[in-house]
Nucleic acid binder design. Structure first.
Lengths: 333, 333
DNA sequence: ATGAAAGCGCTAACAG
DNA sequence: CTGTTAGCGCTTTCAT
C-alpha cells in the first residue's frame, strides 16, 4: 500500500504538500498538483482512514442507531437508511450501523471516536439513551421528538400537526365521525414519539372541532384486518378514516375494497405515510406525506453543523402538507 | 478524553503494560491489572478507534454493500442486515454500510482500510464489481453465487438445490403440472444469482422428472396479482405452485383464497423464503426456508477467517431443507 | 512480569 | 507557493 510519503517522493515534493494538495487547504501550483495527481494515480494511492482519523480527530463516519424491532416497518426503515446514506455521502461521510437496542454499543462508538456524530432512530418518550447521550462528547441527533431531550437536538416530521392537519382537512370536507388507525400495539406501548404525537394531534384536533373521535390500535401481525375494518365500520358509521400505520395499509385497503366501501363516497381516508406506501393498486390515497428524504437530509445537516462547530438550528419539526388524491372529496368552498 | 498514557500514569505503570492489559496478549499480575482497571473506570477511558486502527492495521469494521433497489424486498434485506450485525458484534466488529449501487465507494472503503473485509449482497452474474474486488487487498465475501467469482469466496443458500428439492418433494406428493412464480422482473433481468439459480433448479428438476414446467415472472408493484393467479390457474390446471418471491407472498395468498383454491387439495404450494414471511394469516406455507441467520453467520465467519489469515472453507453453499406445513399433502409412502 | 522506544500514516502548526 | 517537524493515541518489538 502506497503511503503519502511514497507520493511525496514520487512527485518530488514534501509530505505536507501532498497533504495540502489532497485537502485543498492551501493553494498548490498547477504543475505540482499535476505531478502529485500523476503519482497518486500511478501508485494508486488511497489515504489511510485510520491515520487520517487519528491526526484530524475526524472519523469520517456518522453512526446510525436503527430499530431492529419487528413492529417497525422494515420498508420505512430502509427508506430512512437510504436517505441518510445519501446525505452522508454528500457530506463525504460513511454510515456506521448500530443496533438501536444495543445501548452499550451505541455509547461505545461515540466514546471511541469511531463516528463524528450519532443519529438515533425510533426515539421513545423517556428514552433511556437520552440522559447518557446528552453527556456524550460528540454530537447526537434524535430522529424523533421526545418532550424532554436534555438538550439533544431533535429532528422529526411534525406528526402532531400532521394529525391535526388530517383532521382539519377531513372536517373541511364534511367528515364528522372520525376513526384513526394508529401504529402497532408494540410501538404504542413503547411510546415511540411519532406514535404518541400523532395520537395526541388526532385527539386535540377532534375535540377542538367537536368531532367524534375514535382511536384504534392495529397490530398488523395479529389482527385479522378484515374483522377490524368490519367492526370499525359497523360501529357509529364513521365517515372518515386516518391511517398512521404503513405495514397495515395494504391489508386495510383490501379489507375496505372487500367491504364494498366506496372512497371517498362512503368513507374519506387520509394516510399519514411516506409517498411510496400510499399507492395501492389503482388507488392513490390522499395523504399527509412523510418526507423521508427531507428528514434524513435535515438530520445529517444538523449533525454536520455540530461536527463542524457551526451552530445552526437544532430542534427541527418539519411541517406537514396534505396531498389530496383519490380518497377525499374536493373542498366545496 | 483520557488516553492510554493517562491510564498508565494514574495506575503507576508503563504505557505498554496498559496496552497489554487491554489486549490480553501478555500476562499481567493481578494487582497491576486491578490498578489499571480502576484507573480506566475512574477516568472513563475508551481506546481511540483511529489510533488503534493505525497501529494495528485493523479497522474493527466490516463493510456491507446493501442493495437499495426497489425490487429487492426491504424486509428480507433488513433480516440480513440484522443477522450480519449480530455476527459482526460477536466478532467485535461494527458494520459500515455501503450502497451496493455505489461501486466507487465500495472500492474506496476497502482501499482506505476503513473496513477489514467486505460483504457484498445481491450479487449478479457477471457482476461488474467482481473483477475489481478480486484485486482488493482485503478479504471480500460474496453473498451470492455467481458462476465465475474470480476466486472471491461465495457464501449463499443453495437456491438451485432448493428449487430441485421443492420440485422433487412436490412430485413425491403427486404433483405433475408445476408452475413457479419467480422474482420480480427487475431482479430477473439483473440476473441476481439467487433468481437465476432458483429458476435453473426448477427447470432442471422438472425436465429430469418429465414434469410440465412453467416459469412465471411476477412483478409485485405492477401486476394485478389477482389476474396473474387467475390466468395461472386457468391455463393447464397446475396442481402445484412454487413461489420464490417474498414481496408477492401476501398478495398471492389472498388471490388464491379469493379464487377459492383449497390448499393442498386443489393446489399444493411450496414457498422458497425466510420463515418469517411464510406465515400468512392462519396458513403456514410449506417452505424451503432460507436460513438468513445462518447465511449471515457463515459470511462473517468466512470474512473473519480471512482477516485473521486463517484459511478456512471459502465457497459455501448452504443446503436446503423442506419444512412441510399446511400447503402440501403428506407423502404417501 | 514490566518498561522503553520505535513506528503506524496522516494533519497542521510553524517557518520561510 | 513550499518544506520541516511535532504530534495524534495506539501496538509491538526489544530489553530487562
Amino acid at each position: 500500500m502506497a503511503t503519502m510519503s511514497d507520493i511525496a517522493r514520487e512527485a518530488g515534493v514534501s509530505l505536507s504538500t501532498v497533504s495540502y494538495a489532497l485537502s485543498g487547504k492551501r493553494t498548490i501550483s498547477e504543475s505540482t498538483r499535476e505531478r502529485i495527481n500523476a503519482a497518486i494515480t500511478r501508485l494508486s494511492y488511497h489515504p489511510h482512514a485510520g491515520a487520517r482519523a487519528l491526526a484530524s480527530q475526524r472519523a469520517g463516519a456518522i453512526g446510525l442507531a436503527v430499530p431492529l424491532a419487528e413492529d417497525v416497518d422494515a420498508h420505512v426503515v430502509m427508506m430512512f437508511v437510504r436517505s441518510l446514506m445519501r446525505a452522508a455521502h454528500d457530506a463525504s461521510s460513511e454510515i456506521l450501523l448500530i443496533a438501536g437496542e444495543d445501548h452499550e454499543a451505541t455509547e461505545r462508538v461515540l466514546a471511541e471516536g469511531r463516528v463524528d456524530a450519532l443519529v438515533v432512530m425510533d426515539v421513545v418518550e423517556d428514552d433511556p439513551r437520552i440522559p447518557v447521550l446528552a453527556e456524550a462528547t460528540r454530537p447526537v441527533v434524535l430522529l424523533g421528538y421526545p418532550s424532554d431531550a436534555r438538550g439533544i437536538p431533535r429532528v422529526d416530521f411534525d406528526f402532531e400537526e400532521a394529525s391535526i392537519l388530517a383532521v382539519t382537512e377531513l372536517h373541511r370536507r364534511g367528515a364528522r365521525r372520525l376513526v384513526m388507525i394508529g401504529s402497532p400495539a408494540a410501538t404504542q406501548s413503547r411510546h415511540a414519539t411519532y406514535a404518541d404525537r400523532a395520537t395526541r394531534g388526532f385527539r386535540t384536533a377532534c375535540s377542538r372541532l367537536g368531532l367524534s373521535a375514535r382511536h384504534v390500535v392495529h397490530d398488523h401481525e395479529v389482527d385479522p384486518t378484515r374483522e377490524l375494518i368490519h367492526s370499525v365500520l359497523a360501529q357509529d358509521r364513521p365517515d372518515a378514516l386516518i391511517i398512521h400505520n404503513e405495514s397495515a395499509l395494504p391489508a386495510i385497503h383490501r379489507a375496505l375494497t372487500a367491504e364494498g366501501v366506496e372512497m371517498p363516497g362512503d368513507l374519506q381516508v387520509v394516510a399519514i405515510a411516506p409517498r411510496e406506501t400510499t399507492l395501492l393498486g389503482a388507488v392513490e390515497y390522499t395523504a399527509v406525506q412523510i418526507p423521508v428524504e427531507e428528514i434524513g437530509q435535515t438530520a445529517v445537516a444538523v449533525a454536520t453543523d455540530l461536527i463542524e462547530g457551526r451552530d445552526g438550528p437544532r430542534d427541527q419539526l418539519i411541517a406537514p402538507a396534505l396531498i389530496a388524491r383519490d380518497t377525499t372529496h374536493p373542498v366545496h368552498g
